[in-house]
Design a binder for these strands. Structure first.
Lengths: 354, 354
DNA sequence: TTGAAAGCGCTAACAT
DNA sequence: ATGTTAGCGCTTTCAA
């Protein structure tokens, strides 16, 4: 970006002074406000004649209902609060997509809040969201401050925690066990004969899910008598460049690694590209695996091993639970849905020496 | 994903029957509702003693204000509606990030609606959003249905159209001229001596901005007496894989191309990786350029030429305009902010034969 | 099938 | 510094 031209326009508009109300439509159509309300919501019995009249009047005036008032009167808010740590990591937009897919067929609508991985911010965002009295909350992770948990528990609305099943949930939960994901990847790597294994991931306090994968990973390796030979942690967002840099770094420190496990596909792909550039044989000399199952990166000639965390599916399921919990009478039980990701071997994880 | 275990829990909660109201806090603290309201909003003069009392009572009870009621009473909704075509293209989350950065310091909060590039869906989403009486609307693009334009114009709230300045705006606009972006890239490519130029992009009716870039591109080439030698269009999302595939495709049809202009960096990078894999000399044999300035892809060894569309900046500016328009008294003019993207040459665009 | 009255929970505006 | 009153625009409930 260079200079920004700022050109104030002259034309003067801001047409409307007061937004229209039901009353305006009532007057215009010669029908009581109540009946107008009924027509606009398709509720109760209204004769076709009046329905016509009302609809026409509303359309002609350009009436837009005031949901604030409607929500207050009916004590019903068709909003679902969705709270996620970030929008920069595609994982979360993908979950949102799953949620929208399901909610789009219903009167419910999602509202997104972003926490930047900060518990304090999460608390604020949550408070803000709850103050709109949404029909449900879908929130990433199961680690929350005491205050957040208290708010959620007390809210009396369905709460679905997503993307992590390792721990106690407040109400319902959908996701995968990251400990198990880490364990299974470690087991597979060990089974394939790798022994000098490095790990590369985000700084852990930020990201509980990455931490749990790492814990599961080291735990399972330990069971095979293997210790992680080297590890490297980084702050901030993941990018190909970061993956490159850290891979170079870890291999300088520890050139005899025969495998690197990355905490996500983005840095994994960066590492992969780096190794390919260097002419290093992958997975002959060194095997690699990431995490997420990012289709985004599928076009790299050598496909990185990974594990699909089922983000779309998670979003869909979470939305379905909120819906289910909103249908009164229905069993409306607490739910625990654990998705089981499979290893995708790609081209970078195969039996050593094969 | 394989089988999903669905384990209904047994514990029974849904604690609270009726959410707390101001009245509850009033009773608990022995202070009038009005004063409680004042304390909770930091408004007017309240003695430190009563403030303390109220705050303590509110905290102990776990009171969460009901904004629905507050908004109705005060006729003030601190929501900004943000309407975008998609979350799958990182461009939009990046704009959202810019918006949030600015709004986070204010009482305003953004609410996102997604249109899937469908004008009809845009209309619905817009109607939904407007029914919440937001303090402003930030909407991607300047092409909208008549009904949408009418709603926006009649809403009486600030409307900022973003990411495209090629055309008439309703109220204010922030973004770049995609025609100009296309023209400038074409001019540069021509200046550098390329003559057999291909274009690769999304199907146009979907994406006005891509279309305008293409139009600007062909127009500027025409001025140099050059015609686009081959073009390839695709549906659906952009990915590295798609870029690969289409690049192979266009080069099969037209093997003598010396340049390919891609409608975004993702497919551009896919093409780049394909050519590198094939051992083709880039840019010696064929030059490449994309669009967006995606930092995401920075880790590829050969850096794709591109143009930064200033997404964060666009989001920030749009949010600032909404804020400005909400400060009464202030000039509150209509604004037109045209950002001017610069070509980033990377490694794939240089004078032919150098 | 339609209408009238009474709030929803909060805040603006006005007392005190 | 605090309290009282009267709505905000809609829907629920009850009556016709």
């Amino acid at each position: 970006m260079s200079d920004d031209k700022v050109i104030p326009l002259t034309k003067d508009s801001r047409t409307q002074a007061r937004p229209l109300t039901l009353k305006d439509v009532s007057l215009a159509s010669g029908v009581s406000e109540m009946t107008v309300s009924r027509v606009l919501r398709n509720r109760g019995d209204v004769s076709d004649a009046t329905r016509e009249k009302v609809l026409r009047a509303a359309k002609e005036l350009g009436y837009v209902p005031n949901r604030i008032a409607g929500a207050l009167a009916s004590n019903q808010v068709n909003l679902v609060a969705v709270i996620i740590p970030s929008l920069s990591n595609m994982v979360f937009p993908e979950v949102l997509t799953g949620i929208s897919e399901v909610l789009d067929e219903t009167p419910l609508q999602s509202v997104v809040g972003v926490t930047n991985y900060l518990p304090e911010k999460e608390e604020q965002v949550l408070f803000q969201m709850l103050s709109w009295r949404p029909s449900g909350v879908i929130i990433a992770g199961i680690e929350h401050s005491d205050a957040s948990r208290a708010m959620l528990a007390a809210s009396g609305i369905p709460v679905v925690e997503i993307m992590d099943t390792d721990g106690e949930c407040i109400d319902s939960v959908v996701g995968i066990s990251h400990r198990r994901a880490g364990r299974e990847m470690a087991a597979q790597i060990a089974r394939y004969g790798y022994r000098r294994i490095g790990f590369l991931g985000t700084k852990m306090p930020m990201d509980h899910r990455a931490r749990k994968r790492f814990e599961g990973f080291t735990e399972a390796l330990a069971k095979e008598g293997i210790e992680v030979a080297a590890q490297e942690f980084y702050d901030g967002g993941s990018s190909l460049a970061k993956g490159r840099e850290l891979t170079e770094c870890i291999l300088t420190r520890c050139p005899d690694l025969d495998f690197i496990y990355y905490s996500n596909d983005m840095i994994g792909a960066g590492g992969l590209l780096y190794l390919l550039d260097k002419g290093i044989d992958v997975p002959g000399q060194i095997g690699l695996a990431g995490f997420n199952g990012s289709e985004l990166l599928d076009g790299i000639s050598v496909k990185l091993a990974t594990m699909d965390a089922g983000r779309r599916e998670t979003g869909r399921k979470a939305a379905e639970i909120v819906l289910e919990r909103n249908e009164e009478g229905n069993g409306a039980e607490h739910r625990r849905v654990e998705l089981t990701p499979q290893i995708q071997f790609g081209d970078t994880l195969r039996r050593k020496g094969h």
